[in-house]
Amino acid sequence: MKKNEKMVWLAIGVSFTILYILKYGFQGFLQQLVNGLQLGSLYALIALGYTMVYGIIKLINFAHGDLFMFGAYISAFVGAYLAGRGLIGLAFIPAMLLSMIVTAVLGMSIEKVAYKPLRNKPRLSVLITALGVSLFLENFFALPAEKVFFPFNKIVFGPNMLSFPKLIDDRIFNFAGISISMVKSIDFFVAILLMIILELIVKKTRIGKAMRAVSFNREAAYLMGIDVNFIIMVTFGIGTSLASAAGTLYALTFCCLDNPFMGIWPGMKAFIAAVLGGIGNIPGAMLGGFLMGIIETYASSINPQLGDVSAFSLLIIVLIFKPAGLMGKFEIEKV
């Protein structure tokens, strides 16, 4: 970005901030910042999966939001089991881990069945397949159990609202006039912890190095003796488990899961967050996620309807002025 361009953006940001503070006060501003960081941490977790998958096979995995949904449901079932045995509090951790594993398995199976056979086909056919997978996951899991024959009646979630077991007694702390909820802080810190772990995996481990190599040049990675298909599968697994973790945290915060279509919007916004940060770029996804969460929170505090509009407007503005996203490099690509 050119320097004066940066100044323009900064000026716009600062003037919005000042206007906001003038209207809602400084406390209101800080309160929404806290809320925005919490929402943003969920977006960032989901966005990471989008970006990792895109980075490695240049596919916008439209089914990613549905895997977020799947993770939320699995953790709700595990959570209910644990809560039924009187295990609450930190019990959300095993629920989260278990759902991360189950969802990762689902994610990797999807990759194997639906995406891998199309690896050398035109990119758009994989994109359409991903749309199909997304539609399938949503509609299949929304089937009511009584309409489904054995054994599928055991695994569908049904179209109705499911309440998430109250694993954590939420407490609100007041801090200099800003209320901070315990659950929301857990969201934030768990998300940050997962991001640090991810960063360590990608930067420090053998698999992480292989992942970066495959995303840079698949053929050269083969020549290093890297099992490219395995690495792609692992990437799907990791990305999917992060979405699943976001699902657990989401459920923990909002206490209920609307229906199996609940992943569409968070998925969509996380995707925009990934693009915002520069799709394919891991730190970019984190930045984009937080930015998205914060801006959306401010916008919807002004008018609830503005939340969604702001998300898309932000995307359009960024893509027109900085097409590769905030942290991406621009490359011309052929469809």
Binding site: P117, L118, T129, G132, L135, N139, L143
Partner: peptide, 17 residues
């Protein structure tokens, strides 16, 4: 009714594959 989109999605996936 509930199955419609499931079939539809499967049809699409199989077609693309």
């Amino acid at each position: 009714d509930e199955w419609r989109f499931v079939f539809y999605a499967l049809l699409l996936i199989v077609l693309m594959l």
